[in-house]
Write a protein that binds this DNA or RNA. Sequence first.
RNA 1: GCAUCGGUGGUAGAGUGGUCAAUUACAACAGGCUGUAAACCUGUCGGCUUCGGCCUACGAAGGUUCGAAUCCUUCCCGGUGCA
Length: 425
Amino acid sequence: MSAIDFKIEQRASTSGARAGSITTSHGVIRTPAFTPVGTKANVKGILPDQLKALGADAVLANTYHLYLQPGEDVVQKAGGLAKFMNWDGPTVTDSGGFQVFSLGAAFGKTISKFTKEDEMTRLNLVEKEGVPKPSIYDPEVASQHGQLAVIDDEGVTFTSHLDGSLHRFTPERSVEIQHALGADIFFAFDECTSPTEPYEYQREAMERTHRWAQRSLKAHRQNIDANKNQALFGIVQGGRHEDLRRESAREIASLGFDGIGIGGSFSKDDMRGALRAAVGELPEELPRHFLGIGEPGDILEGIANGMDMFDCVAPTRIGRHGSIYTPHGILHLRNGQYRDNFTQMWRLNLPHCEGGLTSTSDTASGFTMAYVSHLVRSGEMTGSIICSMHNVGFILDLVAGARQAILDGRFDEYRENFVCNYYGK
RNA sequence: GCAUCGGUGGUAGAGUGGUCAAUUACAACAGGCUGUAAACCUGUCGGCUUCGGCCUACGAAGGUUCGAAUCCUUCCCGGUGCA
């Protein structure tokens, strides 16, 4: 008996796309769904009621950050994540697994969730030329390299990015914290690897993630009575290697999770292959979350391959930095050319209902580009807020539009049309 | 009028004989950002360039010196003090 109820309402005939809903004790998530990221129990720049108005069904927060500040006990005392942040709806928490990566192998480097192919080549060359690559098991060597996270088989030791204090995460501890946070959906603690790691290491890390998945599940089940409304998702890893992805998906799917997350750090070229390899091994009936994705094209790619949920920091991050999504690509409002462009922001949105205004236009976009450009250029936080709302609204509209298109049996056309406009191809 | 301090690239402001086309900040011009270490980071920022350099520049004009944004002289402009 799962804490959530996932129903598929419609499957596309020409792709893996599907539309449905996930019912949680805090409300329904219509899928495909985009859950804006509110790492510290806050989607940067956007208030919960505004988020609702933009069309969000759920928000995603982070275990590592909330554990450090204010502490999961505070969130628990508040009555759980949703109540704490005054969000009337479903919530999701990530396990801290991504921080294993961003504070570990990726720390201080040019690698990120996505790394460009030529940069990977460059990094690999650098590592081959230099001193033998340090084992990330060695805390001393790792700290010499400035990393804030050090992995061993049992778990991960973090140096807090806030105050330098030392902390320890294990799968059990992550589950415990996430129980306290009380999100409707939470993730098993995993190891997200750098795409520059060799095959042998990817396998090793994947197998560790599998062991951690079992331990997470066990820890959850031991306390299931007090947390029976929380669904636990396992995470598929395996890096860029399709055989590992298949193996990982089979293993994670066999363990009895309530849903599946697909994680990993990619180069642009191998995301699709890794995704397809994994999805091919997953049961139909479990909801699938594509962690940290993403850009409009990547979301549509995910939907076409049967993914149900997405989350990504990009809409708020690039918005905060003064860039906006439009049906024809990203615009940098900081650029001088927008100084006296009085086009209304809402005209830049994607009207997913023919001719209709979108939720975004009502909420955030009655402003001109010239005005928002001025705000952004002069460092006014309202500029960041407007762009963030615009972007979150844009992505939510994109996904809502995709959902409707699946229900109407015209997803391929919808996707093709968008991609053609957005990427100009 | 006398005395004194000062005039540096879009702005502020370092530099006070060679390593100076000139530190730095801001502005400007671009780029990046995919489970948030990020209201952040990177690059360019006198002109030309076959990317090795070449030319023009630190108020103006002369001068000293192998070499001057830096020293000297005169002039112009500004601040301050005294008449």
